[in-house]
Computed example of a mutant assay.
Amino acid sequence: MTKIALSSILLFVAVCGKAQQIIPLYSGTIPNATSYAMQESTSEKDGRILWYRKVSKPTLTVFLPAKEKASGAGVIIFPGGGYSGESYDAEGIRIAETYINHGVAAFVVKYRLPSDSIMVDKSIGPLQDAQRAIQLVRERAAEWNLAPDKIGIMGFSAGGHLASTAGTHFDEPLIENPKSTSLRPDFMILIYPVISMTEVPAHKGSRANLLGENPTAAQIERFSNELHVTTQTPPTYLTHTGDDTVVDVDNSIAFYQALRHHKVPAEMHLYPTGNHGFVLKLPTEEWMVPLFTWMKKNEWVK
């Protein structure tokens, strides 16, 4: 049994559908945390947790496919919510339930939301949790029947900013990593993502929540992920709508252009209408069809 399993209570819960476990991300002290433990709040319906707010204790919810279906691939999911909340059910649990039907293990991260009350530096707290999630899943890959080179990340909206930050800042470790475990995801899936923190096309709410009302030029540059694409950035799948009035499609376009210029394999699906959160209005099995096709083409799923 692993240290993290010994040091924490394994929770089996009905509200998470087919989830097998909920595991604390950290077995000991949470990095960058103050002594203040914020009381989480949730929105619930029909026995399911729809939203989390005021998150101070990050967790990983584990979904494993049946062994006869398992492809060896895994996806770590970061729900969106403008860095002020997390759309845990629609952009997390329901997506994970679809993945396991296709033989892909899924891990929904309830990450810390930026707050000066619970973090020494709120701008790096979510990224620390993303890096820890990648580290944890990769280190327990054998236990969960995963290929350690088929572990990707997925993010929606502000969760897409977090995912793209993890995918472009993996060589900037912000957590302890005694085993030198690779923090680089093998692929990224970004759904109507926030990418940039520049004045245009930044999502102002996400930027203010992560960096404060008056971020420095250095902070804006550090977290504008289109500026940090290199030839080592993981292959990426993007989808967005042209009429998104919440997170401008220019975020996805700028990131795609940076990927293309660095010869990083990338596929982008743009739709003329649907606005923000358009995939949430569709059955997951419908809108994820091209995503699974992309995964198969790249041999993460056979």
Rank of each mutant, 00 (worst) to 15 (best):
1 M>R: 12
3 K>N: 14
6 L>C: 08
8 S>I: 00
10 L>Q: 13
10 L>E: 08
13 V>L: 12
14 A>L: 05
16 C>W: 07
20 Q>N: 05
21 Q>G: 01
24 P>E: 02
26 Y>Q: 02
29 T>E: 12
31 P>W: 02
31 P>F: 03
32 N>L: 02
33 A>P: 00
35 S>N: 14
35 S>L: 13
36 Y>T: 13
37 A>I: 13
38 M>K: 13
39 Q>S: 13
41 S>D: 06
44 E>T: 10
46 D>V: 02
49 I>K: 06
49 I>P: 00
50 L>K: 12
53 R>N: 12
57 K>L: 07
58 P>S: 06
59 T>D: 04
62 V>N: 03
67 K>R: 12
68 E>N: 15
68 E>V: 11
68 E>P: 04
70 A>K: 03
72 G>E: 02
73 A>S: 13
77 I>H: 07
80 G>K: 04
83 Y>K: 06
84 S>D: 11
89 D>I: 02
91 E>T: 07
91 E>G: 07
97 E>V: 08
98 T>R: 11
102 H>R: 14
102 H>Y: 15
102 H>Q: 15
105 A>F: 06
105 A>E: 02
105 A>M: 06
107 F>V: 04
108 V>H: 08
108 V>A: 08
108 V>N: 08
110 K>L: 05
112 R>C: 02
113 L>I: 04
114 P>H: 04
115 S>Y: 05
116 D>Q: 12
118 I>R: 03
119 M>Q: 12
119 M>K: 04
130 A>C: 06
131 Q>C: 03
132 R>K: 15
133 A>Y: 02
133 A>D: 00
136 L>F: 03
137 V>I: 09
138 R>V: 04
139 E>R: 07
139 E>D: 11
141 A>H: 03
142 A>N: 10
146 L>C: 01
147 A>P: 01
150 K>N: 11
155 G>C: 09
157 S>L: 07
161 H>F: 13
162 L>R: 09
166 A>K: 11
166 A>T: 09
168 T>I: 10
170 F>M: 09
172 E>M: 04
175 I>N: 03
182 S>F: 05
183 L>S: 05
184 R>N: 10
185 P>W: 10
186 D>G: 13
188 M>G: 10
190 L>P: 11
192 Y>S: 04
194 V>P: 05
194 V>R: 09
196 S>C: 11
201 P>D: 11
211 L>R: 02
213 E>S: 15
213 E>T: 15
215 P>C: 10
221 E>L: 13
222 R>Y: 14
228 H>E: 05
228 H>T: 05
229 V>W: 05
231 T>L: 15
232 Q>K: 15
238 L>W: 08
239 T>V: 10
242 G>W: 06
243 D>R: 01
246 V>R: 07
248 D>M: 02
249 V>C: 09
251 N>D: 10
254 A>F: 12
255 F>P: 00
257 Q>I: 09
263 K>T: 11
263 K>Q: 14
266 A>G: 12
272 P>C: 00
274 G>A: 00
275 N>T: 03
277 G>D: 01
278 F>S: 00
278 F>I: 00
280 L>K: 14
280 L>Q: 13
283 P>W: 08
285 E>N: 11
286 E>R: 10
289 V>M: 08
293 T>I: 13
294 W>K: 05
